[in-house]
Amino acid sequence: MTEKPSGLFHRDRGWHPPALTPLYKTSVKRSPAAAPIAMPSTLSEDTGPVFTRDILGPQDADLIHNFASDGQSAIGPRIIVYGRVLDETGRGVPNALVEVWQANAGGRYRHKKESYLAPLDPNFGGCGRVITDEQGNYEFRTIQPGPYPWPNGPNDWRPAHIHFSIFGRSFGQRLITQMYFEGDPMIWQCPIVGTIPSREAIETLVAALDMRRTVPMDARAYKFDIVLRGVRQTMFENRLEGL
């Protein structure tokens, strides 16, 4: 008997933010009013695209340098962000594509629609990507992003954060989330963070400072593990399998 993937664990919708969260105003007209229709995953959600390392350039996981002119580097506190991509069963997810984007050290994004008065850093683009190893480990280097104000309430600010997009094995595992930094008081007043119903869930998005992984005289390290939905394993001979 072999184990074969056969469907995703159902999603705990009470753990995720609901669609309608009025304190995050943009959600009001962009949230479906009907309940999503529940269905067991099929082959269409259990399968998904696979990415290989040949898509990666040599500096894709180094945001300090991947947009910088030769010999230059981005301005800001240098950090290493590392961790594992796991699924709900605790297994590491190998070959997961992790894509990240963030503001610069002043809290400014490199985007035409961004109007915050903090300056652009000519040596910082704000995107990077990495593919996890056989145990699900990933690591990249960047500068710590700054907090920034955003149009929502009259005086709302985002805590410093890095956006993460993750591909597991299945299209149904697709996830976008954000990483926050240990000790940041801005986390607890942010309406976007506040869309998450429980403090316990929010805390799983706060990366811990890890002085042991810090490179002395170079960069501090933050550890951020990401959990994707579990893939159910069933005994091959027990039922018809699509995969």
């Binding site: 959600s27 956006h163 998450i196 959990v227």
Partner: peptide
């Protein structure tokens, strides 16, 4: 078992990353 990481919006600048 672990809990899935909670989702957060892709935000207005998702294109920078993806």
């Amino acid at each position: 078992t672990l809990k899935e990481s909670p989702s957060q919006t892709a935000g207005p600048y998702v294109h920078i990353g993806l």
